[in-house]
Structures are given as structure tokens and as C-alpha cells.
Simulated assay, not measured.
Amino acid sequence: MTKERKEELQKICLRFRNELIDLLYSIQTGHPGGSLSCTEIVTTLFFEKMNIDPKNPNKEGRDRFIMSKGHAAPMLYLNMAEKGYFPREDLKTLRQVGSHLQGHPCAHTTPGVELSTGPLGMGLGAGLGMALGEKLKNSDATIYVLLGDGEIQEGGIWEAAMAASKFKANNLIAILDYNGVQLDGTLEEIMPMGDIGKKFESFGWNVLYCDGHDVEDIANAIDEAKNCSTQPSIIIAKTVKGKGISFMEGKNSWHGKPIDLEEYKLAKAELGGVV
């Protein structure tokens, strides 16, 4: 990745952070913490790595992205609107009655959403099914699944991990948004998971690590995962919940808290945005 391209992607991420805060403040609902922690991950996929066509969202052979941690839908929608899957003005209807932009992604209402998510633990198994289906069609498509900290406590994740290894689903790449915080507290407080990398290694996965807020590091990890021809891969991306806004960073209280006026002004000041 060139220096110029990295700077361009970083600017897009900063703009998305500003737009996220504007959006969630305006509707007084949504999930800021987990959306901010996955900003660079989702943006790198949509703007640098995935083979997708917003004008033909069901195109055969496309790469697929599953937002398995469905509460981070606002960041997914910002990327999708920017890419042209739907008009940007639709973002204002987020989580409103009758909107196609529901609080969690819905494949039935939103073009480009590959799987309806919300109940945690579903995405990896569904992603595996998609990956195996693409193999049957001799497709070069890659299936990306973004997982959350609390989500990897779900048994379904590990059932899918076993099966993905058995069937050598090398076209399946999981990315863990590893911010160490979930709804009710830290990962260590709620359900310590030990060494996640070693766990996935023991299940037969190719395990990679990256800085989840460095677009170049993320892109390089994705390239390395795609070069693995015999195993599914997981990229453990170290992130910060609420990244970019000091009073939100690392705080489980910002998992789904509405933003009041003073908090909005402080957040915008830190992001360099105009109120």
C-alpha cells in the first residue's frame, strides 16, 4: 500500500467516525463503541480488498462480508452508502420504523447485506456455508466474517471453527474485532477466553495478528490470509472500543448508549469535526 493510499483511507475512516457520531446523536439510539472499534477493518475491506459491485450486489463470484457482530451495523451502512449500495440520505432513517436500515443488518431489506445478523454466533457458520458453496462453483470469492469479543463466547462459533478446518475452507477469513470489551464489562470480567490465537490454532486455523486501527497492517494481514491455501484464517485485530473519542474508549457503557449534547460537542471536537 502506498503512503498516499494509506492517507486516503485514513481520511475516509476519520470522516466515517464524524458521520457516525452525527448520525447516532441525531437519532438518539445505536451502538457507538463497537462501530468505532471496527472502522478501519470494515473500511479496508470495502475500499481496498473486496471484489464487489454495488450496482450488481448479487453478482456471481463476488466476495462477501458478514457483519456477525450485528450491532456495529451503523459502520457497515456508512461504508455501503459511500460505495453506492443505497442513497446516503437513507442513513438518516437508521433504526426508524419502516426503514430498510434496521438496527442490525437485514439481508431481506438492504441491498448488499449478505446475512441478517443480531443474535451473536451465527455469522461464522453461515460464512462457512457460503465459502463451501463458492468452492463447489469453483469460484475465487472470499468470505469475510467480522466477529466481536462477546460473540466468541458462543458455542456456535467453535462448532463452525471445527467444521471449517475439517473442510479446509481456505476461502473463509474471520476477523476478530478484539477490543477486549463487551456489553456488560470487559472480556476478562464476563468470560475470560484465554489465548484466542492458540484456541483457533488448536482447531486447525491459520492465525494472524494485526493492529485493527492501521489500514495498511489490516490489508497486509488479509493478503497473508488469502495466501494460505490449506486452512481457514482468522485475523485477530487489536482494537479499542470507542476508538477516537477519549471518554468512550474502552468503556462498556458506550456499547449502546445515546449521545447527549455535551458528549456530542466533545466527541466532535476530538474528531476535528464541526458541530
Rank of each mutant, 00 (worst) to 15 (best):
Ser26Glu: 15
Glu4Cys: 03
Ala73Asp: 03
Ser37Tyr: 00
Ile21His: 05
Lys69Asp: 00
Thr43Lys: 11
Tyr85Trp: 11
Glu40Met: 02
Met75Tyr: 00
Arg64Ala: 12
Thr93Val: 14
Ile27Glu: 07
Lys6Ser: 08
Gly30Cys: 06
Leu91Asp: 00
Lys49Leu: 01
Arg62Ser: 14
Leu76Arg: 13
Arg17Phe: 02
Asp90His: 04
Tyr25Asp: 10
Lys69Gln: 05
Leu23Lys: 06
Ala73Arg: 03
Arg5Pro: 00
Arg5Ala: 02
Asn18His: 10
Val42His: 04
Lys6Val: 13
Pro54Arg: 15
Lys83Ile: 09
Gln10Leu: 11
Thr29Trp: 00
Leu24Thr: 03
Cys13Asn: 12
Tyr77Trp: 08
Lys49Arg: 12
Gly84Met: 12
Ala73Met: 02
Thr29Glu: 08
Lys49Ser: 01
Ser37Val: 00
Ile66Leu: 08
Ala72Gly: 08
Ser26His: 12
His31Gln: 01
Gly61Leu: 09
Leu20Phe: 04
Arg95Trp: 11
Met67Val: 03
Thr39Tyr: 00
His71Cys: 05
Ile27Thr: 12
Leu36Val: 05
Ser26Ala: 15
Leu14Phe: 03
Lys69His: 04
Lys55Cys: 03
Lys92Phe: 10
Glu48Ile: 02
Ile66His: 10
Glu7His: 08
Asn51Met: 06
Glu8Cys: 13
Gln10Asp: 13
Pro54Asn: 15
Gly61Lys: 13
Leu94Cys: 07
Glu82Cys: 09
Met80Gly: 11
Lys11Asn: 15
Ala81Gln: 09
Arg88Val: 14
Lys11Thr: 14
Ile21Asp: 02
Lys59Ser: 10
Asn18Cys: 14
Asp53Ser: 15
Ile12Gly: 01
Pro74Thr: 07
Leu45Ile: 01
Ile21Ser: 02
His71Asn: 06
Leu36His: 01
Ala72His: 00
Ala72Trp: 00
His71Met: 06
Phe47Trp: 08
Met50Asp: 11
Leu9Tyr: 08
Tyr77Lys: 02
Arg95Asn: 12
Lys92Val: 10
Ser26Arg: 14
Lys49Asn: 02
Leu78Pro: 01
Leu91Glu: 03
Gly70Met: 02
Ser26Pro: 04
Gln10Glu: 13
Ser26Cys: 06
Phe86Ser: 09
Gly70Leu: 02
Arg62Lys: 12
Phe46Trp: 10
Glu19Tyr: 07
Met80Asn: 08
Met50Gln: 12
Phe86Ala: 09
His71Lys: 06
Gly33Cys: 06
Glu60Trp: 04
Ala72Tyr: 00
Gly30Tyr: 09
Ile66Lys: 11
Thr29Met: 04
Asp90Met: 11
Arg5Thr: 10
Pro74Leu: 07
Phe86Val: 14
Asn18Arg: 15
Asp22Leu: 10
Lys6Asn: 05
Tyr25Met: 11
Leu23Phe: 09
Pro57Trp: 13
Glu19Asp: 15
Met50Ser: 11
Asn79Thr: 10
Glu48Asn: 10
Pro54His: 14
Gly70Gln: 01
Ser35Asp: 04
Glu40Thr: 05
Arg64Thr: 11
Arg88Lys: 15
Lys55Gly: 09
